[in-house]
Design a protein around this nucleic acid. Structure first.
Lengths: 149, 149
DNA sequence: CTTGACCCTGCACTTAACTACAGGGTGTAG
DNA sequence: CTACACCCTGTAGTTAAGTGCAGGGTCAAG
């Protein structure tokens, strides 16, 4: 399960293993998210298991809602053994606040939209459709037939 | 309810009323989201209550998670009295699916991150910090890694 | 008459995270 | 030997939803 093989790969191979685009590796390198890799005789980038791990982390962190900028900072923080644990935790907590706000925003959207959809029979022409009325700017109030003719 | 006034405004005034940037009005016009407004003698754009309503809709729809492209389509659909109600409802339903998936993705993130934060005392140096370990690629809990969908 | 707040147009710039060339070099299978 | 897939660099383009600016015109107040 751990690193037993020599594991040295070129761009496309690592990209496939890590589940990212091959060009993205160059981009991440440019942005300082991964180390400049060693090169072989021909100048090809040679990656190893450490790079794979780092990329896997990058993907996990992206899935957790971190931006690449955040991830870069996180990698710097956690790369420095002197970083106090609190710094890292505060970072994660701040991100959590953002994620929770997004969730509640989306839940509000979901509620509004699903109510509109539920109110709409889906049959008949546009007149009286609750969604269209909401759009038309007349508040969702059902009995207001202000469709222009 | 005072929609009896002539209510004619220039850019900045309408922008303020609608809660959007003044330049955005030009952008929306360019993108076909609002009608080309009338002009006065000097060539100034003159907006009315209808424009305000449309802008307010645009903002509401954005809050519901629609992109400007979506909104443009919606406005076209609902501007056409012949549009079947079903078309509009299907549109809203498709958006609802997207919103619901986002919610559950974010909830998964929230769960992972809050578990990490809860496990981290916030005291001491970095060694042994669950967040840092997660980052470092040692999976903190090999059991339920990235349950994603 | 001057100042300052608006307005006009057209175009360039922004942010994020890639993605796609163009124009070359390298490595390997047949 | 020749395809062909892969690698290199540098640069430019993409999408979304605007924002900003230059270089002018207009309008009301003082």
């Amino acid at each position: 399960m751990k690193d037993t093989a020599p594991s040295s790969w070129t761009r496309a191979t690592l990209a496939k293993l890590a589940g990212v685009g091959a060009e993205s590796l160059r981009f991440y390198e440019q942005q300082g998210l991964i180390e400049k890799p060693a090169r072989n005789e021909a100048g090809y980038r040679i990656y190893d298991g450490g790079d794979l791990e780092r990329l896997q982390f990058i993907r996990r962190a992206q899935d957790l809602g971190f931006s690449l900028q955040d991830i870069k900072q996180l990698l710097q923080l956690t790369g420095n053994i002197k970083t106090p644990r609190k710094t890292v935790r505060d970072f994660a907590e701040a991100r959590l606040v953002v994620i929770r706000r997004k969730i509640s925003d989306l839940q509000a959207m979901e509620k509004s939209l699903s109510r509109l959809v539920a109110q709409c029979s889906g049959k008949g022409a546009l007149r009286g459709c609750p969604i269209a009325e909401f759009i038309g700017g007349q508040n969702i109030k059902p009995q207001r037939e202000t469709c222009h003719e």
